[in-house]
Structures are given as structure tokens and as C-alpha cells.
Design a protein around this nucleic acid. Structure first.
Lengths: 220, 220, 220, 220
DNA sequence: TATGAATGAGACTTCATTCAT
DNA sequence: CATGAATGAAGTCTCATTCAT
């Protein structure tokens, strides 16, 4: 990092005068961005300060240490993030599944910096627990969803914990594989991939039944 | 890392006298291990030297710089790794799929340090290209496999590129989710998860057809 | 010192509203305390401000700099301190000596923070001169006292400058040696030590004459 | 501190190439000097490094931290220092006392940097214990000496613990009072002061008996 | 081939001090 | 009178890298 700073256009002498809360949040946001982009070790306190147009010392008025800053970033991330959203269950199972997968993948995408941060720093104590919690929560939510669907007779009974893992793996993996796409490419990939997955998940690939899937016809 | 090195107590004299090639490889192996464990930034040259029972200066007789060392590590990794292995196509499709998935997931697992390294440092130039190549290769191989299966009539025709992505996402995601398991736990998870996935992928979850899957009956 | 200040939780609003003079004196007193306890370098401006329940910036409305604050602290100390007090000369010489020693030692004790401060910072310009002055004054006063005693025939003639140094050395040394005692222990030590010293100083230890000393009989 | 460094006469490019042990000891010696002169807080790691004509980073090859360096300095000091030396007891008591006092004061003087260091930093854990130990040892040794003298009938029986404290206070105080004298002035002061003290201690000041003291005649 | 002393740049962190409010 | 956001210099410490031996 640390690309030569622009020669300070001597305009409003620096990003001065914010209230404590504002500055604090600004630093947290920038830190999240940078940590996710370059990793914790790859980001210097000065990088964050520079991004906020502020001197490095100031950071320590708000956070005890760089490590503490990370902890707060992760903590906030954890509160803010919600990967699996409520899905309207009163619709055909195909739509349910498609909505679920799309929303999940989109959730990962929308919180990509958070997810990347957690993924990169998962071994650091500050990040390990929140990550584990988040993960657990996702699996439980998904399993609950499948239980509901089975109860309603929408899908055949099966090991819902396993299914939750399958869907989570799919969504994580998909987001990971496509992390470098820009927003437009991503949207296209998502619209193609999710229905395809729904088709497979619901009707399998063995027979031609997948063609029975009403939401898509992903033939080559 | 790096707990204050006592000033060289000239103990059982350092692990001297290896041939150049041996030493070189030893350093590459240790570097891989450490980079994957602590990240590039989190590993000091001294950490590697210490692990090799050698002084830090020596590293520079074998590698131009730490960055160059990483490049070689990644390069070697790329050569060594093979995530998708040949699968015997002359067996029921269920077994093919199960073997495929199992071998893939196991391949990720077996090369976990490599994969972790690539995953952690994927943004560093030294790692970015090899990772992209590896990824591409995996997708192509998988797609080719599915083409063969369709040709043989083993599965219904579909977007094999998409399917390749699905399987890759599944395998990556699964390995990611379970990266903390020890070998035994992993084996159990694998044996449970792969057949389940095969059932879903081949027969779907909509009807009870999955029970037709001969390799497993993962009912709750 | 200085345990990470939480970013101003606007608690029971800081100890505001003192007149200028009051605040000034409060800061001087607290600075004395802290400088003596932790040394000049070991005390931060914020430590002082915090002790006064005031923000650090305020200090600079009253003092030009930290160094200037020290100078004033030392100056005031110098004015306030009086190590050797007037002693009633119309009593037996033993009582005179005992009173003298006791008062001196107690003077050091009572002004321990001042003395410690001077002792710790004696090399700093702000403290060097006052300390030298104080020292000189003490020696002169003591020597004068001995001159009086000799004049009165209370003690035999001798080098009173030397004697002054002896008594000063004794008192300083005693206070130094016992600086860690609490008030009770100190009182006991003082009551034991001073008469003993008086006995020695007046009658020596060579013969048994010390037992002639009427104020104490410090036999083992 | 930190006076502008002389522009590096580009001679022997820097104080390079010493063996580990040599450099280590050099750093310890310089640190002792500087800590005693400016205090721990008043001495920067760079000051020490500069004094050794070395860069600051090097210090950390030999010591874990500045604090650890202090601890070793103090530890070594403690081993090296011996304030009270053996005194030849087969001579007149006046000579014994004079030798004792002179040697003690000289001991303090010779180890002034050590003593100053301990005195300045006595509150720091690294220095507190050694100082207390040293102090205790001195008092015990002195008391033992007086016991011997009493046994031999050289002086009258008295509280030897108290006497030890008296002598220690005298010697410390004397050295403290005269710490600013140069070596010549010091020698003069010592030769005047010690015999005087011996006279007082042995024969008192009450009568003219002090004049009986054969080793000095300190009249004004 | 290998050591390990040494450097120098830069990291994190602290703190005296300034100044808008 | 008082706050507290902000600076900038300096301090402790780390680490990739060089080089005499």
C-alpha cells in the first residue's frame, strides 16, 4: 500500500472537525474497507488515517490499538450482516428456492467486504468467534427453512442440516468464485446460476425432469 | 509470531550441510506451511529460517527476496496441485458423481495449505495468476466431464459450464466450511455430505425420487 | 500510567467552574503530586488534567508548557518548604539536639513529595537552582545553630560547617532509607532513631558515656 | 537529550563488527551510564544506540525491550556493587571507624552511576527488588561489624541495628550532598568529613573529648 | 555453504501542544 | 472558562535485507 499521497491541495486544511461519533464511524468504515482489501497485516494505521485525511495519531483517540479497531470493525460487521433473509413461503417451491438462493448470494455479495474480512482474518481471535457465530446462525436459519418446506409438503423429507450445508456451500462458493466480477457481470452470473441451481436441486440432473422446472430452461 | 530470539546459544549446531537443492526445497516447503498458516505478511523471514534451523541470512542465498520466495512457493504449488482427478466413467452415474465429488473435496483437503495460501494471498501478483489458472483448469475439466456423461446418456443435457461452477462452488464451499475439522471429523462429514449431494444433484429434492438413489438414503 | 481514555463519556460533567486562581493552584498541587510520584517524564499532561477532572487543553490556558508548569511547581515548593525550624535554645542540649533532628527529619517527611520531586528532577534546569538554594540554606541555618550552641557553651567548639553537613546527611539519609514506611512505622522509627543519634552525637560510642544521655537508653 | 549527531566522519563506517558478547556488554555499560544520568524515561533507545555508534534496531537483537535492558543493567549492577568492604579490625577503633566510613563513602562514590540509577528508578519493578536487597545487605553487614567491635570491647554496647542505619544514612547522605563535586573536590571533602564524623561518633560533641580523637583535629 | 552482526525503513503508539468551537 | 478534535514529532520496536567473516 501506501501510495504517495497527493500533495494536499491546501483546501480545507485537512478533514478536520468532525464530532467524535462521526469520526469514529468513519474510521470504522474505512478500516473495514481496507482490512478487507489488503488484510489486517497489509493495512497500516497510516493507510486508514490517510484515507480519512487525518494523522495517524488521531486513531488512538478512538481506539486503543489497531487490534482493538479490528475487533470493533468485526463486531459491527457481525451486527450489521444478515446473510439469509426471510423468504415468502406462499409461492411455488421453485420461486422460494430461487429467491432464497438469490437473496443469499446477493447477501454475501452486498456484504462482500465484511465477508472477505472475516474470511481473511478468521484466525485472529477478534474475528474467529464472530465468524463462527455467523456461520452457525446461517446454518440454523437455512435448516429451519427447509423444515418448514417439508412440513408444507413442498419438498420431500431429507436431512435438512445437510441440505443447509449444501446451500451455504453453494452460496459461499459462488460468491468466492465470482468475487472479481463487477456489478453488471455479477448480476448476469447470478441470474443464470441461481435458476440453474434451483433446477438441479429440485429436479436433479439424472432424468430430463429438470426441464419441468418452470422458472428456467438452461439448455446449452 | 517471533518470540524474542535468545542471542544464539550455539546449541546443537544448526541444521547444517544440506545440498543446495535440498535446502532450497526445504525452505520452499516450510515457507508454504508458514505462509498458509499466518499469511505472507504474518510470516517473517526469520520464522522460516528458524523453522529450517538456519539463520535468516541464508535465505537470501537461495531466493532474491521474500516476495520471490512466495512466487516460487506458489509456482510449485500450482504444479503440484490437482484438484479434479480422473474418474472411472464405466460405472453407474451415481458412483461417478460420488467419486468425483469425494475426490474433489478430498483434493482440496489434501492440498489445504496450498489452497489456503492461494486463498489468503490471491490478491498478491505472485499468487493471482496461478490461482486464476488453477480455477480455470478446474472448471474446464469438470465441464468436459459432464459433456462426456451427457454424451454417454448418463445424465440429461444441460449447461455444463454452469454445472461445473456448481460443483466447484460446492466443493470449495464444503472445504471452506469444514476447514477446522480434524481428519477424523472430516472423513465423517465427507462420507455423509457427498452422497447427500449426489442424491440431490441427480434426483432433486422436489419429489421423493432421491430415495431412488442407490448409494445413500440420508433421511432424517 | 495513562490507561486508554474512553472517548469522553460526558459523565457527571467535568469539575468545571473554578476561579482562575483556584484552578491554577489545583493544577500546581496535582502536578506536584504526580511529578513526585512518577517523575516529570513519567507524568503526562493528560494525567494532570485527568486528576483535575479537566481536559488537557485547559492546562495551556494556565501554563505556557509542561516545563513551565514544572518550574512553577518547583518555585512554589521552594517557597513553601522549610526543613529546619526554629528550635527553643533554652533547654538542655540533649533536648535541643533531639528537637532539631526530629523536626528536620519530620520536615523532610512532611514535604516528602517536594523533596522527592527535587531529588528526582534535580538535573532539570527548572529544579536544579531551587534545590541548590534550598540545600545551601539548610546548611547555613544548621551551622548558625551550632555556632549559637557553642557560644552558649552547650557544646564544645568544632567545625560547624562540617557538623551541619553531618546532620543534614543524617536527616536526608534517614528519610531516604525510610521513605517507604507508612506514617505509623515512620513515627516509631523516628522516635527510636533520633534519640539514638543524639546520644551518639553528643556523647559518642567509645565509652559508656552515652548512657549519661538523659533522653534515651537505647541498649540492645 | 538527542543532541545533533556529528556528521559521521565517514571513517570506519560505524562501530561495526563486534562479537555478540562484546556488543552486549558495551550496550549494558552505556545504558547504565545514560540511565543514571538522564533516568530511564529520559533516555531513548536511540541515545544508547548512538552512544554505541550503532542503529537502534540492533539493541533488540540483544535485549527484548528497553525495560528488559534496564533489568539486566540493574541485575549486573547488583552483582558488581559492594558498598561495605572488609575492614582490618586489628587497629585502634578510630582507624577502624575512619576506614569504614571512608571505604563506604568511597564505595558509594565509585559506584555512583549504579547508586544513582537505583536511586532514580527505585520505583520501577526492575530496580526495586535489587535496591531493597542491596540496602538490606548493607545494614546487616554494618550491624555485624559493630557487634564484632562491641565483642572486642572497642566500643560500648548499643543498638547495633540503629547504629548501622546511622552510618548508612551518613554515607548515603554524604554522597548525595556531594554528588556534584569533581574527583578532587570530593577527595578533599572526604578527607575532611570522615575523620570529623569519626570524632563525633566515637567521642561526641558534648564535652571537649573529641579532641582526644587521635586521627584528626577538625577545628574551624 | 553458512553465520550472525548490522542497517534502515517503516510499523505501531504516545504525547505535548494547538485551535475551532 | 472550558472542551475535545486534531496535529506532528518522537519513541519503541520489527523486519527485510546486506555483508564481513
Amino acid at each position: 500500500m501506501t501510495e504517495a499521497a497527493p500533495p494536499a491541495t491546501s483546501g480545507p486544511r485537512r478533514g478536520r472537525r468532525l464530532t467524535g461519533a462521526q469520526r469514529r464511524q468513519q474510521l470504522l468504515d474505512l478500516a473495514l474497507e481496507l482490512f478487507a482489501e489488503h488484510g489486517f497485516d497489509g493495512t497500516t494505521v497510516r493507510d486508514i488515517a490517510t484515507a480519512a485525511k487525518v494523522t495517524d495519531g488521531l486513531i488512538y483517540r478512538y481506539f486503543e490499538s489497531k487490534e482493538a479497531l479490528l475487533a470493533e470493525v468485526v463486531g459491527q460487521a457481525r451486527e450489521r450482516i444478515q446473510l439469509v433473509r426471510a423468504v415468502n413461503l406462499d409461492q411455488p417451491v421453485e420461486h422460494i428456492m430461487r429467491d432464497l438462493l438469490t437473496a443469499f448470494a446477493q447477501g454475501v455479495r452486498d456484504n462482500l467486504t465484511l465477508v472477505e474480512l472475516l474470511r481473511l482474518e478468521f484466525r485472529r481471535p477478534a474475528a474467529a468467534r464472530p465468524l463462527a457465530n455467523l456461520h452457525e446462525e446461517v446454518l440454523v436459519t437455512l435448516a429451519g427453512l427447509f423444515d418448514s418446506l417439508i412440513e408444507r409438503g413442498a419438498i420431500a423429507p431429507h436431512d435438512t442440516a445437510c441440505a443447509a450445508r449444501l446451500v451455504a456451500a453453494l452460496a459461499y462458493g459462488f460468491a468466492a468464485i465470482h468475487r472479481n466480477l463487477d456489478d453488471d457481470q455479477w448480476a448476469v452470473a447470478l441470474e443464470q446460476f441461481c435458476p440453474f441451481c434451483v433446477g438441479v436441486i429440485l429436479y436433479g440432473t439424472a432424468s430430463g425432469d429438470a426441464s419441468a422446472c418452470p422458472i428456467a430452461a438452461p439448455q446449452t
